[in-house]
Amino acid sequence: MHGARLAGLRAPLTSDELNQQLRRCLNDDTLPLEARIIGALTSLYALPTTRIVALTTDRFQRDGDDAYLTINKHPVLLPPRLAVLIERQITSPDVSTSVLQQSHAGKPGFLFPGRPPSRPRSAETVSEYMRKHDLPGISARNTAMMEAITDLPPIVVSDLFGIHPHTAYAWAQYAQNSWAEYLEAQSAD
Rank of each mutant, 00 (worst) to 15 (best):
L85E: 01
V126W: 01
M130S: 04
G106I: 03
R121M: 09
N142S: 04
A54H: 14
P108L: 09
S127H: 08
A140C: 15
D66S: 15
A83I: 01
N142V: 11
R121Y: 00
D63V: 09
E87R: 11
V84H: 14
S127T: 06
P80Y: 10
L69K: 09
N72M: 09
Q102V: 01
R62A: 07
A67V: 08
A105D: 15
P136T: 01
S98V: 01
P120Q: 06
S139N: 10
L85C: 00
A83V: 05
R115Y: 10
Q101V: 04
F112C: 10
T57K: 13
A123L: 03
L100R: 10
S139C: 11
I52N: 00
V53Y: 01
V76A: 11
K132G: 07
E128K: 12
A67N: 11
P93W: 00
V53R: 05
I71R: 02
A144W: 02
I90D: 07
R62T: 04
L55F: 15
P80M: 11
F112V: 06
S118W: 07
R131C: 13
M145P: 04
F60D: 15
R62V: 03
T57G: 11
S118G: 06
V53L: 11
A83G: 14
H104Q: 10
P93T: 06
L77E: 10
S139A: 15
G114N: 07
P79K: 13
E124I: 09
M130Q: 12
T143A: 02
V126T: 09
L77V: 08
F112M: 07
H104A: 12
L69E: 13
D63N: 09
V53Q: 06
G114I: 10
L100W: 08
T56I: 06
L111E: 12
P80T: 04
L82M: 14
Q101M: 08
P80D: 13
D63F: 12
N72I: 02
V53N: 06
F110L: 07
P108G: 09
D66P: 09
V95S: 13
R141Y: 00
V53K: 05
D58E: 13
G109M: 06
I86C: 04
P93S: 13
L78P: 11
L82A: 10
P117Y: 01
A140W: 05
K107S: 14
Q101F: 12
D58L: 12
V126K: 01
K107L: 13
R115T: 15
F110M: 08
P93F: 00
T56V: 11
K73D: 12
A123S: 14
I138C: 08
G64A: 13
R141N: 03
H104G: 10
L82I: 09
L55P: 11
L85A: 01
L55N: 09
R121K: 14
T57C: 14
S96C: 09
N72A: 14
L77K: 15
P120L: 03
D58I: 04
I52F: 00
